[in-house]
Design a binder for these strands. Sequence first.
DNA 1: CAGGTGGCATTGTCTAGTCAATCCGCACCA
DNA 2: TGGTGCGGATTGACTAGACAATGCCACCTG
Lengths: 260, 260
Amino acid sequence: MTRRVADSPKPLYQQLADSLRAKIISGELSPGSQLPTEKDLCEEFATARQTVRHGLAVLVNEGLISPARPRGYFVRRHELSYVRPQSEWRPQPSSPEMDRWMEEQTTLGREPSQRISVEIIQPPSKVAERLNIQPTSLVVARRRVRYIDSEPFNINDTFYPYELVKGSEILNPADIARGASQVLTELGYEQVRATDEIEARMPLPDEVARLELGPGNPVLVHRLTGYTANDEPVRCTVNVLIGSKHVVLFERVKPGKASL
Amino acid sequence: MTRRVADSPKPLYQQLADSLRAKIISGELSPGSQLPTEKDLCEEFATARQTVRHGLAVLVNEGLISPARPRGYFVRRHELSYVRPQSEWRPQPSSPEMDRWMEEQTTLGREPSQRISVEIIQPPSKVAERLNIQPTSLVVARRRVRYIDSEPFNINDTFYPYELVKGSEILNPADIARGASQVLTELGYEQVRATDEIEARMPLPDEVARLELGPGNPVLVHRLTGYTANDEPVRCTVNVLIGSKHVVLFERVKPGKASL
DNA sequence: CAGGTGGCATTGTCTAGTCAATCCGCACCA
DNA sequence: TGGTGCGGATTGACTAGACAATGCCACCTG
């Protein structure tokens, strides 16, 4: 038997999703609060459990709620941190122990940590294009997963043409306090120009694994290519940021106008 | 009866999703091609239709496939257009008939169109913050939905403090060929500085409606605030870009280094 | 040949159940 | 007092069906 009326074209699971979504957006159900259980919703909407689950799945995939088995469904929290790509040109961090990101997060009262690994590989095609090299030539991939309060925060993979950085500190899978771009400068490849490409998509399986993501969690992909004064690309960084945790911020001044 | 073996902890619907996802990523199933029907997959995986549908739903929500009822499921295409926020400082468009975006798209051989509406409202809280005004004061909201080849492409809503622009051309819900920021300059509020904030999230219901989005389609939100030489905010633009169709591009030069 | 029309394959919605997995708290025992 | 184990509530996985809705295509009709 179908409980849908001819006049109401919307399927029941959509009505359920709409109803709960409205409560979440209006704030009636605030972040962190618990939703009614599936059983309760079955009774409220006089329907089978599968239909209720279908409606809840819609909201899960919209990133609005997440199930915490077997405690129930909860409204998700969204706390955004700013990412400022331009800050890489700023003065060096004061502490020689930590890189810029670690220092920033510590200042904000969080507990940052990161896992670094280094590989020598053939570059992914998008990276090869941006570094202007053959896909068969070698690059050094410096891969980082960064954590805050032991929760995954973002992925930060930087690719350098192998010929440029061989034998340098960059091959060492440890923190480089003064920054990898400082090392590049010392090697004679100062990065004076950069392009930033930013896109949004759903994560790939390996990203899901590395960032421990569930459904309804898009990622912000920030691809940064750095060039020398001769317009030679020296590095390509691929940042994969969890959408619900990051905002990327740029500041621009009209050409010809005095900057601050 | 459960067909899951004790050794294989993955549920069947995940195995199905993994199997098809691998074929899509490897290219065995190329963009635009059709997947096996639900019935075929039921036989292949020896399972009930609901389980197959569950597996397919995973891929739909990952943005990899989309169902075209009743023809079957197809691998989604992703074609990205570049968005360059910095180009607003560039010389004016040559044609007096079209604004910059329309002209760019026409040059690329596409058929752009847009729907413009203007309202005078109280600003959303995020906009009020950025314009540094009370949430109860009035703003002019110039709303645009842009289409390419009659498919929705992005949303482009700009908010101006009402006091700044009242009586001007900006209240007119039509194309402003020389650009709205030129009008602001003529009114004595030249925008010489801007900040860009970019985030990724799943779309809200009104965005789903305006952009005709299905599941698995994250959006890129680009929030642009423009300031005068006195650091007064003069406008706040909220661009909602369909993730699978846009890349935002910035170019930077290290301070103190000569630009091109 | 143009236009309608009906059948068919396919996906969409929904039911009513079973059994598994997980976490939490409470009762019980040492 | 402190662990320890058990049970209950809840979500997760899956089955085997029914009927609706949609778009396409082949066929019939004028």
